[in-house]
Amino acid sequence: MLTSPDFLVPDREWCERRIPDGAGRPAADFFYSSMLGTNHGAHDRLRRLVVRELSARRVAALGLRVEETVAGLLDDFAEAAADGADADFQDLVALPLPVAVVGDLIGVPAADRLRLRQLGDDAGRLLEPVRSPEDWARADRGVSGLREYFTALLRERRARPADDLASALARGQRTDGAGESDGAGLTEGELVDILVLVFAAGFETTAGLLGQAVHALLTQPGQWALLRRRPDLVPAALEESLRWDGPVPMTERIAARPTELGGLPLPAGASVITVMAAAHRDPEWFADPDAFVVGRVDGRVLGFSAGVHYCVGAALARLEGAVLLRAMLRRFPELRAAGPPGRRTGDGLRGFTRLPLTV
């Protein structure tokens, strides 16, 4: 379903037809016109610029900064866990790490990141498969606040450019003498919404991945011990974590034409929830699917989706996860869980609100 041309993502036309209450809502306007809610040419022109700016070179260049950020956050974690105390890994490390990394990437000053993190968490309610009035209210508040902030940041970067994504996007909108734009003719609103999406998606899902990977490994002591002996398996451990308990369990697709799925006929326009978390436990693809096994060679992990909507930030998320796990294995080889974690509410995103650990 994720790769078939028979299925599209819900877009603005679908929203107007199926969610009349979305009319005039900032959250609906953002979601169904961003990369998440566009198809074909509209999606390509938005994605092309982001893929260019999140190139392998730019991500690799962030490596040293990620290592420095990880080291500082683990210092804070070690201090909080001194003398046998419990420390909340999610609050001290898993959440602030991707916020700092995506903040550095975009050019968000450190002093602004906590407020934007809260707005991004509100905007994340858009990923719920069924949105309550409260979800819509929070999403509207989050999107409006983020749009206001990034509009001002683009204006600032045009006056004082820096080496960051906001400056690159601001430059990309400029036209040459022939009126051609190397930013694919994106409007100011489209540039702002790219920054909103990169920021919100860049920390919400990665924070979930980091916390869930550490939790999975600590609930499987043999696998944590394996990584201590074989740190070269860290990338494989991240992939197994995405399969076993990934941050994005499902996504929605719309049948573009009459088709069939698993023997079930679907009319054009049918809405289908694709549950990747279920695919990841399919015994026809994964041997002993309920077991957490680092280094699996069977099946295909869909934690970053697939097809044209494959996550543009996958390489950055993997980099953050690999740097963090390797540093934790070196510094805290005896790391242990210290009580039950708290999970976030909702169905659209999985993650922890609290993950107490002891060193």
Rank of each mutant, 00 (worst) to 15 (best):
E239D: 14
G202I: 07
G263C: 01
I194R: 04
A236T: 06
V196E: 11
F199E: 13
E240M: 02
A256M: 07
L242Q: 06
A291N: 05
T206L: 01
D193R: 04
R230A: 11
D298Y: 05
P231H: 10
V214C: 04
F199T: 13
F199I: 08
V297N: 15
L302A: 11
E260K: 04
F199G: 10
F203W: 12
G295E: 03
G299Y: 09
V196P: 13
A277W: 06
W285E: 15
G269W: 07
R230M: 08
L217V: 04
G262Q: 11
E284L: 13
F286S: 06
G299L: 03
A270V: 09
T219H: 10
V234M: 03
V294T: 01
T205E: 08
R228C: 13
W285P: 00
E252P: 01
A256Y: 07
V248Y: 02
L217D: 07
L191T: 10
T274V: 15
R281S: 12
R243H: 05
L261S: 03
D193H: 01
P265V: 07
G246E: 06
L302C: 09
P221M: 00
L266S: 13
P249Y: 11
L218K: 00
L195P: 10
F199R: 11
F199A: 13
F304K: 11
L238Y: 03
V293A: 10
V272C: 10
F199L: 09
E239S: 12
A213H: 00
T251V: 04
D282H: 03
W244E: 01
I254M: 08
R243L: 01
L227P: 05
G295I: 05
T219K: 06
G262M: 10
R253T: 12
W224G: 03
E239W: 11
A236Y: 07
S271M: 14
G262C: 09
D232V: 07
L264C: 15
G202R: 07
A306S: 14
G295P: 06
F203H: 15
L226S: 09
P283H: 09
E204N: 14
V198Q: 12
H280Q: 08
W244F: 15
P221K: 00
V293W: 00
D288S: 11
L217A: 10
E240K: 10
L264G: 13
L233M: 05
A201I: 01
V192H: 07
I273S: 15
W244M: 01
A255N: 09
D245Q: 11
G211E: 06
A270G: 13
R230S: 13
V293F: 04
G211S: 11
L242I: 07
V275W: 11
V234A: 11
L302S: 05
A201P: 14
F286L: 00
Q223P: 03
D298F: 01
L238H: 04
G208H: 05
D245L: 06
R296K: 13
M250K: 06
V234E: 02
V293R: 13
I194V: 14
E240H: 08
A255V: 03
V301C: 10
G222I: 03
I273W: 15
W244C: 05
S241N: 00
A216M: 01
Q223D: 00
S241L: 01
A277C: 03
L238Q: 08
V248C: 05
